[in-house]
C-alpha cells in the first residue's frame, strides 16, 4: 500500500535524515516547516532519492490557523497517512530564567503546537484504519533537570500526549512511536561542551524506521540511553534535587 509521510519541522537534521530514509523506500513525502526555499530544495532531494513525490507544505507550530490546509492536502493522498513530528526549540535555560516570556514559545514549539496539529490530523488516520505517528521527544523529558527543565517539561508533556494518542489510534489500527534521542550531532548541539556518545542524524533515522516497522512504542536512540535514563530516573529526589547537570 502507498505510504505518505508528513514531516513536521522538516528542516532539522534529524528530520532531513528521516525524510531521506522514507524517500528511499518510495514513500510520498510532505516537508512541513517555515523555510520555504530550504524545504523546496529538500523536496527535490527526496524525489531524486526515490520518493514517489515530495512537496513543501507551510507549517508553523505557533500558528494553528494553518493546520487545516495541511490536513486537507494530505486527505487527497491515497493509502496510509503517517506523520513524523520533529518540531521543537531549545532555548538556554539561563535565557528563559532571564526572560520568562521565552517559556511560552518553547512550550508551543515542543508541545502545544504539534499536539494541536496531531489532534486535528488523528481523525484522518482513523478513517484510513492505520498509519503511524512518530513523535520525537527527548531524554530531557524523562526528568526535570536544573540545566534544562523548561524544554524538558515541554517534551515531557508531548510524551504524555503521545502515550494517550497511542492508546486512541490503536483502536483503529494505527500506531504511535515515541522517540527519545540522546545527544545527536545537529545544529542544536554543534559546539556545545560536555557532550558524549553523540549519534549521527542518519543513525537516529535508521533507528526510527526500524521502530516503525516493528511497531515499537517508545525507543531511546542510541539504545543505551534507555539504561542511562533508567538510572537518572531512579536517583532519589532527595539526592537529585542537589545535583546540577
Amino acid at each position: 500500500m502507498k505510504q505518505s509521510w508528513l514531516i513536521l519541522g522538516a528542516s532539522s537534521a534529524m528530520a532531513r535524515a528521516f525524510g531521506r530514509a522514507v524517500a528511499e523506500q518510495g514513500a510520498d513525502v510532505f516537508l512541513a516547516g517555515r523555510d520555504a526555499g530550504d524545504l523546496q530544495r529538500g523536496a527535490a532531494d527526496c524525489v531524486l532519492r526515490g520518493a514517489g513525490k515530495a512537496e513543501y507544505v507551510p507549517f508553523d507550530a505557533r500558528k494553528p490557523a494553518g493546520f487545516a490546509a495541511i490536513c486537507e492536502r494530505l486527505a487527497l493522498q491515497d493509502g496510509m497517512l503517517n506523520v513524523a513530528v520533529f518540531v521543537g526549540s531549545m532555548p538556554e535555560q539561563s535565557a528563559v530564567d532571564a526572560d520568562p516570556a521565552l517559556l511560552d514559545p518553547t512550550v508551543q514549539d515542543c508541545f502545544t503546537g504539534p499536539t494541536r496539529f496531531l489532534h486535528e490530523f488523528a481523525p484522518l488516520m482513523e478513517a484510513r484504519g492505520g498509519g503511524t505517528v512518530v513523535g520525537v521527544g527527548s531524554v530531557a523529558g524523562d526528568r526535570g533537570r536544573y540545566s534544562n527543565y523548561v524544554y524538558g517539561s515541554a517534551k515531557a508533556g508531548f510524551a504524555t500526549y503521545l502515550s494517550g494518542l497511542r492508546n486512541r489510534l490503536t483502536r483503529s489500527g494505527g500506531h504511535v512511536v515515541t522517540v527519545k534521542p540522546g545527544f545527536v550531532d545537529t545544529a542544536m548541539t554543534w559546539g556545545l561542551p560536555g557532550l558524549f556518545l553523540v549519534a549521527s542524524p542518519d543513525d537516529v533515522a535508521r533507528d526510527i524506521l526500524k521502530a516503525v516497522a516493528k511497531r515499537k512504542n517508545t525507543i531511546y536512540t542510541p539504545f543505551f540511553w534507555r539504561w542511562i535514563m533508567l538510572i537518572i530516573r531512579h536517583v532519589p529526589e532527595a539526592i537529585f534535587k542537589k545535583m546540577s547537570f
Binding site: S11, G37, D38, W190, G191, L192
Partner: peptide, 30 residues
C-alpha cells in the same frame, strides 16, 4: 550560529589548526 572552537586537521593529521568552525544546515544559515 554557534561556533565550535577546537583543533582539527586534514587527512594526514600532521598539520593541525585551531579555530572556529560553523556547520550550517540551511543555505539561509550560511
Amino acid at each position: 550560529m554557534r561556533w565550535k572552537t577546537d583543533e582539527y586537521s586534514g587527512w594526514g593529521r600532521v598539520l593541525r589548526a585551531t579555530g572556529e568552525r560553523a556547520r550550517p544546515e540551511k543555505t539561509n544559515a550560511l
